[in-house]
Amino acid sequence: MTALDVEQRRDEQRRRWAVAALAFAVVAPLAYIAQRLIDHALTGDTDALSMIRQARAAYPWRAATAAFWGGLAAIVAASPATASSLPRSHVGRYAMAAAGALGATVLVLAWLFP
C-alpha cells in the first residue's frame, strides 16, 4: 500500500465521520420532536395544575433518548455500506436542505406544541 493509498483511505474515513456528524445533527432534533409529539398525542393539552404536579423532569430523558437515536443514525451513516451508496456530490446539498427544513420544523412545532 502506497502513501497515497493510505492518505486516500484516511480521507475517506474522515468524510464518513463528517457525514455521520451531520446525520446526528439532523436525527437528534427530529427524534426529540417525535417524542414530544407522541407525548402530546397521549396526554393532550395539559393545564397548569397537571404540569405543576408532574413528578418527573421529562426534558433530560427526552434529550438523552434523542441523543441515542442521533448516535444510532450517525453509526449507520458512518458505515461503509451507507457511505458508498451516497452520491458524494449531493451530500452537501441534501444536508443544506435538511438544515433549512429542520430549522423551520423545530420552530413551528416547538411553538405549536410547547
Binding site: 463528517a18 451531520l22 439532523v26 432534533p29
Partner: peptide, 18 residues
C-alpha cells in the same frame, strides 16, 4: 436542544472533513 445538536454536528463535521 436543536441548537445544541446542530452546533455539535456542524462542528464535528467541519473539523474532521478532509
Amino acid at each position: 436542544w436543536a441548537v445544541l445538536t446542530l452546533a455539535l454536528g456542524a462542528g464535528v463535521a467541519a473539523l474532521v472533513s478532509p
